[in-house]
């Protein structure tokens, strides 16, 4: 069987995600035919089995928007990789005033522009993540795949959402998963419940997919959304 083709494409950002992916190239080339700028071959006009996009989309840049749309058209599975591409991440805080004056509306998760199949938060995701994910997608089912598919449909995830949806709603059981996941120690356990230090949250979304309650809510909501969209297609709304 021939190896699947995979395109790895960076839309910009801090370069943490491309660096993280670069570290698994030695393993990745064993399981897939890799197309990326770093290995000197990128061709947006051919078809790919998987496309992995890192970095947020800049709405002000028609060139990048066009590129992203082309990638979507030419790939069978599109993966938004890393917090910026999947849920917005720290780039959501861009508010003008800095050079080159990015504003809130300018940078967005790529699901704002195209349909995304799987969205992986993480700032940046650990190198091994990509290999596990590709292996899982190849086998095609399971709770965590459902979860990453659900993240693609609901790109609003951060420590603030964790507080709103789970902790303040009284659904938190106090397992401590979010606290152990937070890369910036923005969450701490106080009286057996997580508490958010707002200034420290970089909106990477890791805590939300690690929370057993939130992940369950996300999956159920995505099922409802899919049902609603198929219903509206039938009734022609």
């Amino acid at each position: 069987m021939s190896k699947p083709t995979i395109l790895i494409y960076d839309l910009g950002g801090c370069e943490g995600c491309p660096l993280s992916i670069m570290r698994v190239y030695p393993q990745l080339i064993n399981i897939a035919d890799v197309y990326t700028k770093c290995l000197g071959k990128v061709d947006l006009d051919r078809e790919y089995d998987y496309a992995v996009v890192t970095g947020p989309i800049c709405i002000n840049s028609p060139k990048h928007v066009e590129e992203l749309k082309k990638i979507r058209k030419n790939s069978r599975v599109l993966i938004a990789y890393g917090s910026c591409a999947s849920v917005g991440g720290i780039i959501l805080y861009a508010r003008g005033g800095q050079e080159p004056r990015p504003e809130h509306r300018v940078y967005a998760p790529i699901s704002r522009v195209v349909r995304v199949d799987y969205a992986i938060p993480g700032c940046p995701p650990a190198p091994q993540m990509l290999i596990s994910l590709l292996n899982c997608i190849r086998r095609g089912k399971g709770y965590f795949l459902d979860l990453f598919r659900a993240v693609a449909l609901n790109p609003k995830l951060s420590g603030f959402d964790l507080m709103d949806e789970v902790v303040l709603n009284g659904l938190c059981v106090g397992c401590g998963a979010c606290v152990l996941s937070c890369p910036t120690n923005a969450l701490q356990m106080i009286d057996n419940r997580p508490d958010l230090i707002p200034e420290k949250c970089i909106r990477c979304g890791t805590c939300t997919v690690r929370c057993p309650r939130f992940s369950q809510i996300l999956i159920q909501r995505s099922r409802l959304l899919q049902k609603a969209s198929s219903l509206s297609r039938i009734s022609g709304v």
Binding site: S20, I120, P121, G122, C123, P124, P125, A126, Q128, M129, S132, L133, C136, F144, V173, C175, G176, A177, L180, S181, P183, T206, V209, R210, P212, R213, S215
Partner: peptide
């Protein structure tokens, strides 16, 4: 050793390390 919710978290850490700081 944990409860099912904690096992879910640990399994995710092991299978899908989202963070470099994970102890996968």
């Amino acid at each position: 050793v944990g409860l099912p919710c904690q096992a879910q978290f640990l399994r995710q850490v092991k299978m899908f390390p989202l963070m470099e700081s994970d102890f996968s």
